[in-house]
Design a binder for these strands. Structure first.
Lengths: 159, 159
DNA sequence: ACCAGATTGAGAATGAGTCGCATTTGCAAT
DNA sequence: ATTGCAAATGCGACTCATTCTCAATCTGGT
């Protein structure tokens, strides 16, 4: 499914979505993070992203968003992803195909657990890196920690 | 200088290189990792990469490599980076310009400490994530941990 | 309902990275 | 040294994800 930055490539993912119920509160919250204007395309994109925690390509997201707001354009998908990503709400990872996938992962600082089989991204918190560790000749102000492996569902199906 | 995956963008870097002496042993070691054939372009690219731990664009690397092996092509720079990256010897990160930078960071598993000001990449080991931490509903098989901040030199110059 | 500013869609433009293929090179056997 | 072959290279064409442009269209507050 995906390729960690310089790590093992993996196979393609199954298709069943809707692992989570869409929680309207989160949708509003995410929309607010995008700015004051609430438009149909933005709402559609946000709903689609919140409906699954799987990594999906911008094209995928566009297709799904258009099922809700038909006029949505790819440019807006990119613009929206850009903002959510800057806001730390979206995780970006390279799929094994080489394409880039995006997944919504909520608010606040957290690590990521990314399933190499289905591409699901789950936030891991609280943060595992407490009080910046002493690094010789370097003072860290932030960090990014991603775990790669299998979610329980995929581990079960893996047989 | 660079943009962590979803983190703070930063300013451009100064230009003085050659933080480290080129150690021939490492050059040979890296060349070996590329395969049995040792060619002038490969050697030039490897030497250039080992001569600095700064993130540099493929174009930069090409320019520098050509000072040693004039016939080197951009395609070969990419091919070489690809191999070194797959071998875990090269760290890839997005510069604030949006371009992608590459830096040599040695062998074996390690974390990375990346200076947001000069783009230097230093391997951090031993690994700080010991014995995969228990993550609810997920079994991790690998991880990537990057620290962002300032190296001592930049911290000093930062004033 | 009206306005100023933000947002959008469509398609053109960009540019990093890849590919194909004829040529060159490295290396080991002769 | 010479030779042969597989591996590596350079060049330029090409792909395709992402960005940009800009006129038209919304949004939210008045």
């Amino acid at each position: 499914m995906l390729r960690a930055d310089g790590v093992t490539p993996v196979e393609a993912a199954p298709a069943d979505e809707r692992d989570h119920d869409v929680r309207d509160r989160d949708v509003e919250e995410a929309l607010a993070a995008l700015g004051p204007s609430v438009t149909a395309p933005r709402r559609a994109i946000v709903e689609v992203m919140l409906a699954s925690n799987r990594l999906r390509t911008p094209e995928d997201l566009l297709r799904e968003a258009r099922a809700i707001a038909p006029a949505t354009s790819l440019a807006t998908v990119y613009r929206t992803l850009e903002r959510l990503h800057m806001a730390g709400r979206v995780k970006r990872a390279t799929l094994s195909s080489g394409a880039v996938g995006y997944a919504y992962c909520g608010t606040g600082h957290h690590e990521h657990a990314i399933c190499l089989r289905c591409g699901s991204v789950r936030p891991v918190s609280p943060c595992l890196i407490s009080g910046s560790p002493a690094i010789e000749g370097f003072s860290a102000t932030s960090h990014v920690l991603d775990f790669y492996g299998l979610c329980d569902r995929c581990a079960a199906e893996e047989r």
